[in-house]
Computed example of a mutant assay.
Amino acid sequence: MENKRILIVGSTSASLINFRGDFIKSLVKNGFEVFAAAPEFDKKTYDQLIDYGATPIEFKLQRTGMNPIKDAKTILELKKIISNNSIDLVFPYTVKPVIYGSIAAKLCKVSVISLITGLGFAFTGLTLKARVLQRLNEFLYKISIRKNKVIVFQNSDDYNLFLKRRIIKKKNKVEFVNGSGVNLDKYRYRINNNMSDNISFLFIARLIQEKGIGLYIDAAEVLKKKYPNAIFHVIGYVDESPSAIKLEKLNALHTEGIIIYHGPQKNIADHLYKRDVFVLPTYYREGVPRSILEALSVGLPIITTNTPGCKETVKKDKNGFLIKPQNLEELITAMEYFITNKAKIKEMGIHSRKYAEEKFDVDIINNKLISIVKSALRH
């Protein structure tokens, strides 16, 4: 019998390596023929997917905004990819690939396992634009994923919201995984014996307000005055989002010594090894943030928000703190705790690594996804 053909659809080519690379390798190892589709491949990513044993395929996707003509062309392009490559099962993740990939697969009468990796800005409900986008996305999800073979969620809050908004029904087949998982060998544990006054904090994310960069900077400005030796690192890229922080502001804060801005980085593990505490005060609708999982694996205490996807990564008073979204006072209090209780950094870091091993090991996640794929193809 010929190997079954799986098409993985992502919104960026880099995410196929960074977030699905281990999964792709697991699929290939299990005898599947893997096709990996995304917009705008660079040579390095293209070649890396070839090395994994996958076939890269490029398609056009407008990542932000809604243009009916361009979106229709994306669906038709995905439909052609599915047909031309005799795909047996489509596996899309992130919002637009899930919606358009599911519609394209339905037109080809091909099964779909969709992975809901968080609901993003549209489901924050913070602005009129977000509320309008939420209604539109709800409609698009409803017409696209209800007939999917399996819908995989990364947290129960997203599932319950889909039920409440009648996007899916209770009869829909659903599964749950703990995020994209983290490679425990790549993000090795290191014991932190730092007892100096140079406690360093690290923020990694897209540099938009919803991810909490503004709150992090405000906290850094307050704490730097009180604890001059504390260090506040920022890693991430500035995009064209209306809520993106200005590069000029980051550079000015860097020059003033309030933060150390590293720009976008590829060697994230190296930066994690050098820091003491990981901070992500997001109020974006996350799945389970990959950056937090990497910090857990290395052995950093976590400060994040008590929101869907994030709250699953912290055991209260064991490996960090959960704060209320957009609450600067709570963020400052949590960060100051580690400055004044240095021994807790090592203690909580040990618990972070244990939690990563128990719940977020990429091998555990991928074995479950492989099991879901095999079951879907059998039936």
Rank of each mutant, 00 (worst) to 15 (best):
K266V: 11
S243C: 05
K225M: 12
P228R: 12
V238C: 00
D270S: 15
N192P: 08
G214M: 06
E240Q: 13
N319M: 01
P308W: 15
F203L: 03
Y216I: 00
F232I: 07
V314N: 05
N192Y: 02
S291C: 04
V314F: 03
K266M: 13
P289V: 05
F201M: 00
L223I: 09
H254D: 15
T307A: 10
R206F: 06
P308D: 10
A230E: 06
N193I: 07
A230N: 04
L207S: 09
L207I: 08
V279H: 02
H233C: 07
S196A: 04
I204V: 15
R290G: 08
F201D: 02
V288C: 07
C310P: 04
S291A: 08
I231K: 08
A219D: 01
I260D: 13
N193P: 00
L280T: 05
P301G: 04
A230Y: 08
L300F: 09
V288F: 09
K211W: 12
T255K: 15
D270H: 12
S291G: 08
G287C: 11
S297P: 02
E221N: 02
I231R: 13
K318W: 14
K266W: 12
I191E: 11
P281C: 04
V234D: 03
I204H: 03
I204F: 02
I260C: 11
I235W: 01
P289L: 10
K225Q: 15
R275G: 10
D197T: 05
L202Q: 06
S291T: 12
H254I: 07
L250D: 14
I235M: 09
N267V: 12
A220F: 04
L300W: 08
N192I: 07
E286Y: 15
E312S: 13
S196H: 10
L247P: 07
L215F: 05
L293I: 04
N251V: 13
I292H: 02
P264I: 09
I303V: 07
L202H: 01
K266G: 15
H233L: 13
L293P: 00
F201R: 00
D270E: 15
I231C: 12
N193W: 07
E312Y: 14
I268P: 02
T305Q: 02
L207D: 02
L300D: 04
D239E: 10
S241E: 13
V234Q: 01
G299Y: 01
V298I: 00
E248Y: 06
A295Q: 01
D270R: 11
M195L: 14
T255R: 14
I260F: 12
N251R: 14
R190K: 12
E248N: 13
I302S: 08
A219M: 00
I231G: 10
K224S: 10
S196Q: 05
I208A: 05
Y237R: 10
I217L: 04
I213G: 05
Y261A: 11
I231H: 15
L253Q: 11
L272P: 02
T305V: 01
N306W: 03
S297H: 01
L202S: 06
N198V: 11
D197Q: 11
T305Y: 04
G236K: 08
Y216S: 00
L253K: 12
E210N: 10
P264E: 12
A252F: 14
K246P: 10
L215V: 05
I231A: 12
R190S: 13
H262R: 12
K266A: 02
T305G: 06
Q209Y: 00
P289Y: 00
R290W: 03
I259D: 07
R290Y: 06
N194D: 15
S200I: 10
A205T: 03
L250Y: 08
